[in-house]
Amino acid sequence: MLNVAGRILLELGSNRRSLVFWALFPALMLLLFGLIYAEGGSTGHSFDRTAPGILIGAALFFSCLGGPITVLVGERERHTLKRVLLSPLPPTRYFLGVFLAFCVVAAGQTVVVYGIAFAFGAAFHGSLPLGVAIVGLSVLAYVTLGFHFGARFARTTEEVNGPLAALGVPLLVLGGTFFDPSILPPYLMAAAQLDPIFHMNEALKAVSAEGAGWRAVADHLLVLGGFALFAALVGLRAYGRLLREEGGS
């Protein structure tokens, strides 16, 4: 597991451009939305409200959902998947290695996003362990989903970007990444309940910006946990199928 995570991080480290964009994009989005919502007034409150959504939507979405897809597609394109298949490494440990690698990436992005937010006067108002748990569950949900898409659908790197933008960005908007979802009309609010990003955003905003406790975000955590478990099961199943296909190819 550590071996797989270490290898992924080494590869990411050698491709600094991805790392820079994974830091630059959320940083710029946070600055823009934080300053827009400040409306010339106090930036502290504005960045309090903006940072959680930007972390979940602009940072973790692209790294922890798009990243595992790219990892799996890359393994397939470079034929290394065959070597992994033949090794005694069980699929679950391979998956945990991918998850661990993107946890490290997520930790770095969290430091960048909250570092900027703190610089503009924001604060983390709730329980830090609860915040870490929400971010961790979000990473798990994204990575499992990415694992599923990577194993099931994406055959080449070019196939990754289109669906990610076409399906992912609307889910980000619906999930209230860039605005308060209370402005959504009732039918869209109902649809948002099915969007895991909505639950990630709402839970982290409640804890980070409003200081909410475990009980207040329990429903969101339950949905998120259930989604992550479901995505993990289908993701591992898709991975097993991918290995069989690779073996028979």
Partner: peptide
Amino acid sequence: PQEIALYPKL
């Protein structure tokens, strides 16, 4: 394997 199955950036 017949193909080069390595990580090119490493």
